[in-house]
Amino acid sequence: MSIHIALVKTEGQKISVESAKKFIYSSDHGAESIFVGRVRNENSGKKVTAVTYDAHDQAVIKSFQLICNDAKNKFNNNAKIFLEHAKGYASVGEISILIAVGSGHRDEAFKICRYILEEVKHQSPIWKKEHYEDGKEEWLPGHSLRPKKEVK
């Protein structure tokens, strides 16, 4: 198995860098690239305390599988890929997304990691609601999946 994908419910579960490292390890690989996205304490001048991630579970898993398959086909079929995203309430500092790639050489490891991150942002139905220090909260704007020819 060369691809691991999951949505991790933040209540009771944590995304683990160590698990990712174990998964992608192979003596065939000379490169590992790991991207860790975390909840930041500020956005557009507002003090953020936490983010709630909502997701369409089935569609997210389907998109993760497609994105990882595409990445392997595009850059290196022998790469090992670990992709997990949080779902639920995550405080500042907690991991929101983890992408780990093991492959023969550094170039494809970096490229696969970057490719997956950008495609997740544009294809996977995940939403963020930020919680602020003043008690307010806000769903963040994003990328529309409506077919472009229909958008008025």
């Binding site: 929101s96 963040l140 994003g142 999946l145």
Partner: peptide, 21 residues
């Protein structure tokens, strides 16, 4: 798409603009 004919009692999902990561 917009021409899709809905059926009585059909369950669909609304997908607002996305932004994970």
């Amino acid at each position: 798409n917009d021409n899709y004919k809905l059926k009585n009692k059909e369950l669909i999902s609304i997908i607002p603009p996305i932004g994970g990561g």
